[in-house]
Amino acid sequence: MKIKIISYHKILYQKNIISIIAPGYYGYFQILKNHAPFISILKNGFLKLESKDVKKKIQIEGGLLQVKSNLIIVIL
């Protein structure tokens, strides 16, 4: 599945990933391939991304996350 992390002026990160763990409003949640479509508010915390060869941790201060058709868009 693909992920795009964007701010108001540029794309911060774009890659194929296996999973993401994100800080939702009511706690952390994980998204895997073929997840049902939804939108979530994000709070302060870390996005934990895992691809075939790399695990990455990105600190955020809130935002929005949308999942649709194996594409995840995070707006910070």
Rank of each mutant, 00 (worst) to 15 (best):
I17N: 06
I17G: 07
I17P: 14
I18L: 09
I18Q: 14
I18R: 11
S19A: 14
S19T: 12
S19I: 13
S19F: 06
I20V: 12
I21W: 14
A22N: 00
A22R: 01
A22G: 00
P23C: 10
Y25P: 03
Y26T: 10
G27Y: 07
Y28F: 13
Y28R: 09
Y28T: 07
F29C: 03
F29R: 00
I31H: 02
I31V: 15
I31N: 03
L32C: 04
L32Q: 04
K33G: 07
K33V: 11
K33E: 13
K33Y: 07
N34E: 08
H35V: 08
A36N: 15
A36M: 13
A36K: 12
F38T: 08
F38H: 06
I39T: 09
I39L: 03
S40G: 09
I41D: 05
I41V: 15
K43H: 13
K43A: 04
G45V: 11
F46C: 10
F46P: 05
F46W: 11
F46K: 09
L47D: 02
L47A: 00
K48T: 01
K48P: 00
K48G: 05
K48N: 05
L49S: 02
L49A: 00
E50K: 14
E50F: 11
S51H: 03
S51A: 02
D53W: 08
D53T: 15
D53C: 05
V54S: 14
K55L: 12
K56Q: 12
I58D: 02
I58M: 08
I58R: 00
Q59Y: 15
Q59I: 10
Q59H: 12
